[in-house]
């Protein structure tokens, strides 16, 4: 038989959940320093993307980024995606994926624009309630994944559909009214810095605070080699459930911010965040095979992803082109990412 060595066939990596030949190359301890340098380089790439896109936009049409209020407006688009990208990074680190973020966001916006829009301090409790809904959906995702062994994309596809259905029952079409207290709390600026910028910077910084925690180190280990982590005493099931809870809770936070930004709710507001969050994480250099990634890089990836529409506008193209480019760039980035990963795994 002529053909490459079995392990080198990348097609063997995905088709059946468990790679049938989980050989040593992926074990954390065997990562050579050269490969670790390559991994770090990938996590730095989103900064390069942002730099290049920013320079291009500044040359073509600087008003898009430096005009009055432009920065705050741009970051108000980044903020919800930054939340989801942070959560999606956690799901991808465990070697999973969370499609239900779309349903969670839609459900949260629908609720906050209809039943949960109190004026005054009561809104605080209502915000806690929608975060709790996110936590419950994430907990159900995690529980079904670890207890039944079903693939994450199937479980979260189902909960996406269920959450979308509930959102649709709550608010069939875009509209509703949002609590003015909530709008005041999240819009505007503090000391001249737009709150949207502070939120994104805060989330970015949060990663450097949490990345050394037991939880993050455990899910990185799980994503690198689940059975080995299990043998080493990592509480695999508990940490995986926590990752999905965190992901859905962050999606709920994104939904809260999105409701304020749109000042209305929509039963399909969340759907675009599925593709966008995965794209942000992939542009951020995280491995789609789990075990490697940085939420901070994913947030920078989100910024790069959302600079694309600005570049399209600066180039004088219709906004439809940005939808094309955003999908196209996900394909290119993920193909590149996979090719690098599968080579790294077999050398």
């Amino acid at each position: 038989m002529s053909g490459p060595d079995i392990v080198t066939a990348p097609s063997l990596d995905y088709p059946t959940g468990t790679p049938p030949n989980e050989a040593s190359p992926r074990r954390p301890h065997s990562i050579s320093s050269a490969r670790r340098a390559q991994a770090n380089l990938q996590l730095l790439m989103p900064y390069v993307y942002v730099f290049v896109l920013t320079v291009a936009i500044l040359i073509l049409d600087p008003r898009l980024l430096v005009g009055p209020g432009a920065l705050g407006a741009f970051f108000s688009l980044v903020a919800p995606l930054a939340f989801v990208a942070f959560g999606q990074t956690l799901a991808l680190l465990t070697r999973g994926v969370d499609l239900s973020v779309g349903g969670v966001i839609s459900l949260v916006t629908a609720l906050l624009a209809t039943h949960l829009n109190a004026k005054g301090p009561l809104i605080g409790l209502e915000v806690l309630a929608v975060i709790a809904i996110g936590v419950i959906i994430g907990w159900l995702n995690g529980l079904m994944i670890v207890l039944t062994g079903m693939q994450p994309f199937i479980v979260t596809l189902a909960t996406w559909s269920i959450a979308d259905g509930i959102a649709f029952a709550v608010l069939p079409i875009e509209g509703g009214t949002v609590s003015p207290t909530l709008i005041n709390a999240l819009s505007g600026a503090i000391l001249g810095i737009p709150k949207s910028v502070l939120i994104v910077v805060g989330l970015f910084g949060l990663w450097f605070v949490v990345r050394r925690t037991r939880f993050i180190r455990d899910i990185v280990a799980i994503g690198s080699d689940e059975s080995r982590s299990n043998l080493l005493g990592v509480p695999v099931r508990r940490q995986k459930v926590r990752a999905y809870i965190a992901c859905a809770a962050l999606a709920a936070l994104a939904g809260i911010y999105l409701t304020v930004q749109a000042q209305s709710g929509s039963p399909d507001a969340g759907d675009q965040f599925i593709l966008n969050s995965i794209a942000a994480v992939v542009l951020g250099g995280a491995s789609i095979f789990g075990g490697k990634g940085s939420a901070a890089s994913s947030i920078v990836g989100a910024i790069a992803f959302l600079l694309i529409p600005d570049l399209v506008f600066a180039l004088g193209l219709t906004s439809y082109w940005s939808i094309f480019f955003q999908g196209f760039i996900l394909i290119v980035a993920v193909t590149f990412n996979s090719a690098v990963q599968s080579r790294a795994r077999t050398t």
Binding site: S11, L275, I278, F328, I331, V334
Partner: peptide, 16 residues
């Protein structure tokens, strides 16, 4: 050939 997970490949294609 590139080893991209089908879910991400086809999602990106869908967007494009």
């Amino acid at each position: 050939y590139a080893g991209v997970p089908p879910i991400i490949m086809t999602l990106g294609m869908s967007g494009a």
